[in-house]
Simulated scan of single mutants.
Amino acid sequence: MLDPEALSRDELITVVRDQAAQLADQAVELERLRAELEQIRRLLSRNSGNSSMPPRWMIFPVGRVSASRPAAGSPAHRNAGGGNSPARRARICPG
């Protein structure tokens, strides 16, 4: 810590200017953090009753089928194994 009584007038002016710049930077950062906190509070206060967004469970339902597999009962699912096609029979029973 600096002893202000041991500093010259010019040194004191330099210290005060440095502190003023530091305070200005802190004020900007404080305002940014206040805005971020307000946004977080607003997001936390939302639920499916007061938001246009559906509940998370409606967006990502539990137990949903992978998109890489056709849904059971769909035409793609019934044909996924190749069934009893001539090409499949030729692969299984050549000759």
Rank of each mutant, 00 (worst) to 15 (best):
D18T: 09
D18S: 06
Q19P: 00
A20F: 03
A20Q: 11
A20S: 09
A20V: 07
A21Q: 09
Q22A: 03
L23W: 00
L23M: 04
A24V: 06
A24I: 04
A24C: 04
A24Q: 09
D25F: 02
D25Y: 00
Q26P: 01
Q26N: 05
Q26W: 00
Q26L: 10
A27T: 03
A27V: 01
V28F: 03
V28M: 07
E29A: 12
L30M: 08
L30R: 10
E31T: 07
E31N: 08
R32D: 01
L33I: 08
L33W: 01
L33F: 01
R34T: 01
E36I: 07
E36P: 00
E36L: 14
E36N: 08
L37D: 00
L37H: 01
L37Q: 06
E38D: 00
Q39Y: 00
Q39M: 11
Q39A: 06
I40F: 04
R42V: 00
R42T: 04
R42I: 01
R42Q: 05
L43E: 05
L44V: 02
L44A: 03
S45K: 13
S45L: 11
R46F: 01
R46K: 13
R46W: 05
R46H: 02
R46D: 01
N47T: 10
S48F: 03
S48C: 08
S48H: 05
G49V: 07
G49W: 07
G49H: 11
G49N: 12
N50E: 10
N50Y: 07
N50Q: 13
S51Q: 05
S51I: 06
S51A: 10
S52I: 13
S52M: 14
S52A: 13
M53E: 08
M53S: 11
P55W: 01
R56L: 14
R56T: 00
M58Q: 10
I59G: 04
F60S: 07
P61F: 02
P61H: 06
V62R: 15
V62S: 14
V62A: 15
G63Q: 12
G63C: 09
G63D: 05
R64C: 05
R64P: 00
R64M: 12
V65D: 02
A67T: 07
A67K: 15
S68G: 04
S68I: 11
S68T: 09
S68L: 14
R69W: 05
R69P: 02
R69H: 11
R69K: 14
P70I: 06
P70S: 09
P70G: 04
A71E: 09
A72H: 11
G73P: 05
G73Y: 05
G73D: 12
S74R: 14
S74G: 09
S74E: 13
P75N: 12
A76H: 08
A76L: 15
A76D: 11
H77G: 10
H77L: 13
H77F: 09
R78Q: 12
N79M: 13
N79D: 13
N79P: 00
A80S: 15
A80R: 15
A80V: 13
A80L: 15
A80F: 15
A80I: 15
A80M: 15
G81H: 03
G81W: 03
G81Y: 04
G81E: 06
G83E: 03
G83V: 03
G83K: 05
N84G: 06
N84T: 06
S85Q: 15
S85V: 12
P86K: 14
P86F: 03
P86C: 11
R88Y: 03
R88Q: 12
R88E: 08
R88A: 08
R89H: 06
R89Y: 01
A90N: 11
A90M: 13
R91V: 09
